[in-house]
């Protein structure tokens, strides 16, 4: 601190070419050394401790049932999040609608699915057949045209998917709603004034801007979902954690196999985080004037009035400019 002040002071006193000495942050170095030391010790302790059985970890890390479980975890996470996000958009739009029936229904949905434990919901879907033995398609309160045995539809996979995505939809609804509400009404007004329909306004004006607010918590939700999929162990769908537990129930190498699962969860989380970074950067366009590409400064050769063909060529491969069908 005093060094910085001294440098500033020095600049004021003499206009001569002074050398700027950056302030030294001694505390930072001390902290870094301490952290690295603790980390090294922990790793050393873990790898020299026989009871961790790293050989077993290595043996099972790429074992077929583990990889197959990982694939199922990823599939469950991906599809549940996709349905969850789409449901969330629908729920949010309904919540904000001026139609009282729609907004109440959306509120009730959120209340119910956020208010009951996910585990209960999963079991409920799995045992749906006990409650509703057949699912029928027909005239309401009238004759049934088509009737299917519930057990043939509700497999562990569909039960898991239903449970996870309906639950996610309720949370995403709240996230999307806060994102939409963050956009000033002037934006909707301007969109309407140029003749956009409500759907166009939502798709082209409100949601792309709301994404900035929606993406970070959605990243959290995705990483959460990755781990919530392990709850489907209660209905016997063999995702990563279930697969691992089947193995350790046979060979009793519980800790090494849990480490195998943890390594995979951590790896996938790392990949998701990188993906989130790029998605965030995409939706940050136009909002951070100081960072990113600098616009051409006035007075340079670049600012010559471009011919109409030039922007056309420059932006021809930007998909969001395509006319909506």
């Amino acid at each position: 601190m005093t060094q910085v002040a001294a440098v500033v002071e020095g600049r004021r006193n003499e206009e001569a070419d002074l050398r700027v000495v950056p302030a030294r942050f001694v505390g930072r170095w001390v902290a870094a050394v301490a952290v690295l030391g603790i980390l090294a010790m922990t790793i050393y302790a873990m790898f020299t401790n026989e009871r961790f059985h790293w050989d077993v970890v290595g043996e099972y890390l790429f074992a077929a049932p583990v990889i197959s479980g990982l694939g199922k975890t990823l599939m469950l996470t991906g599809i549940s999040m996709l349905i969850g996000v789409l449901l969330g958009i629908v729920v949010a739009v309904c919540r904000l609608s001026s139609n009282p029936i729609l907004s109440t229904a959306a509120w009730a949905y959120s209340w119910f699915f956020r208010g009951t434990p996910l585990m209960v919901q999963l079991l409920f879907w799995f045992f749906l057949a006990a409650l509703v033995p057949t699912i029928g398609l027909g005239v309401p309160f009238g004759p049934e045209l088509l009737s299917i045995d519930t057990n043939s539809v509700i497999s562990p996979f569909t039960a898991a998917l239903l449970g996870l995505s309906l639950n996610e939809g309720a949370y995403m609804g709240e996230i999307v709603r806060s994102g939409i509400r963050a956009i000033s009404p002037g934006q909707t007004e301007a969109a309407k004034a140029i003749g956009m329909s409500r759907l166009q306004t939502m798709r082209r004006v409100v949601l792309p801007q709301a994404m900035r607010v929606i993406i970070p918590p959605t990243g959290n939700e995705t990483i959460g979902m990755l781990k919530y999929t392990s709850l489907v162990i209660v209905i016997g769908y063999s995702e990563l954690l279930t697969s691992v537990s089947i193995i350790y129930s046979r060979n009793f190498q519980t800790i090494p196999l849990l480490i195998v699962a943890a390594i995979w969860y951590l790896a996938v989380t790392a990949v998701f985080s990188v993906g989130q970074h790029f998605i965030e950067r995409h939706f940050e366009r136009g909002f951070t004037p100081m960072k990113g590409k600098k616009p051409p400064t006035p007075g340079t050769a670049e600012t010559v009035v471009p011919s109409a063909a030039e922007p056309a060529a420059a932006q021809a491969n930007e998909p969001e400019l395509e006319p909506t069908k």
Binding site: Q187, G195, R204, V205, G286, L321
Partner: peptide, 19 residues
């Protein structure tokens, strides 16, 4: 009330192209 996520030119052509 310009659309902040679109450039000046994109703002201008939004109506003609989309609407």
């Amino acid at each position: 009330n310009l659309f902040p996520h679109r450039t000046a030119l994109e703002n201008v052509i939004e109506g003609p192209v989309v609407v």
